[in-house]
Design a protein around this nucleic acid. Sequence first.
DNA 1: TCTTGCATCCTTGGATACAAGTGTGCAAGA
DNA 2: TCTTGCACACTTGTATCCAAGGATGCAAGA
Lengths: 242, 242
Amino acid sequence: MSADAAAGGYTVKNERLVLERNTLDSVIYKELRKRIISLSFQPGSMIYENAVADEYGVSRTPVRQAFFRLANEGLLSILPQRGAQVSHLSAAKVKEAQFIREALEVSAFGEVARIWNKTADHSAAQAKALALIEQQRQVVREKDYVGFTELDVAFHDTVIGVLGNAMLLEMLNDVRTHLTRVRFLELQEAHHEDDAIADHVKLMRSIMANDVAGTQSLLLAHLKMIEAMRDDILKRHDILFE
Amino acid sequence: MSADAAAGGYTVKNERLVLERNTLDSVIYKELRKRIISLSFQPGSMIYENAVADEYGVSRTPVRQAFFRLANEGLLSILPQRGAQVSHLSAAKVKEAQFIREALEVSAFGEVARIWNKTADHSAAQAKALALIEQQRQVVREKDYVGFTELDVAFHDTVIGVLGNAMLLEMLNDVRTHLTRVRFLELQEAHHEDDAIADHVKLMRSIMANDVAGTQSLLLAHLKMIEAMRDDILKRHDILFE
DNA sequence: TCTTGCATCCTTGGATACAAGTGTGCAAGA
DNA sequence: TCTTGCACACTTGTATCCAAGGATGCAAGA
């Protein structure tokens, strides 16, 4: 527990990466994932184990691990003996992910509405969700659309988190990957953030009233609105897609 | 296309594993996965990279990749510097997986019922699904319960496959992992295979009639029946759980 | 000018060597 | 007998080395 014991536990190998107490491969994984989702790697472009290893000052081994994980998530295609290709945006994948997200979130929100304040005291979650809505208003005023995207996800996860279903949250995180990537295409343009916030307010009201059917239809409409927005983006950028 | 071209494409490195034209790590992954799910590795027991590498006659590298993938799926916990532990059966995980499976399959079956023979000709899927039901009757007569489990999954996947949503099938495959593992606990005992087959017949009839609501409530009842069966198993084996 | 084949380079796949953390057992001392 | 500390064995984490397949460019020949 003491600082001494902790300091004795590991040595400083690499100044750049030492802060996160993870293995190197998960550090690389997170870094690359962020860059792929945020489109700082162009979809369709090639990346190489050696290049990434050099860039981060590590050997190929942890980079390889990271590549495999990304390939598993569908963010990278590993072409044997040729390199790894950053996945194209895929209209098909977006549709698939949208279906899954709807199925999971509608069920989850419905269940949350059903049990709200009945099986446990949910005031902590309630406070957090309402605070997130407030922060959303703030970042929209500041036109911080990246921040809004993160808060949007956080709101949904906070509500769903009431179920205590870790596997569900993890799956949703995976699924939303491919949707978020599309959203990054047009972060600068004005969208429907105000509508989204209004939806969030209505959702909370409905959940707190234990209105299962109402919550589910509100959420479905909310997700369909986002989907329509995304379709719009897709049409204008179909060059980037496979 | 010729046998010569194919034969020239790779060399025989290892007599034992040469049949599958995959990388070694995915071969190891599939092998270990099968052994974990079928409980041939005792839940809670430790396995080691070196031991597995020796057993399959490969180096630690591909084994490591496989370990990571299994850990990602929740089938293995990697304990730094200590080894990897085969995950315990977990009542909590089973409940989480059951929720996800219900959400996804009910939505999927509903959608299948909605579009059945409307957007495309689904006679191939229909033939396959009905054939699977017939095979289920056969294996039950032979008391081949492992075979039944596989056919059961195949039936569900065939129906859902109509949607052409690969991501969905993959997720369901992941989710069912933890449910199947429990089922392997009591393969020898008589269960409700006959009821399950009857459910499958009713489901197909309902889908073919484009009865969305009916299909969904049938499926939900079907899944709940399986869940009840599983709960029963859980109670009798709670020693094995964490 | 166009085609074809070969040398070469660059890539990933896999094996091995080395570093560092964790647990265990034994010996020494009280 | 009991406690304590240290050495050692065994594990994973990471780096490096070797093998082999695919792409590319250039030269030779038609």
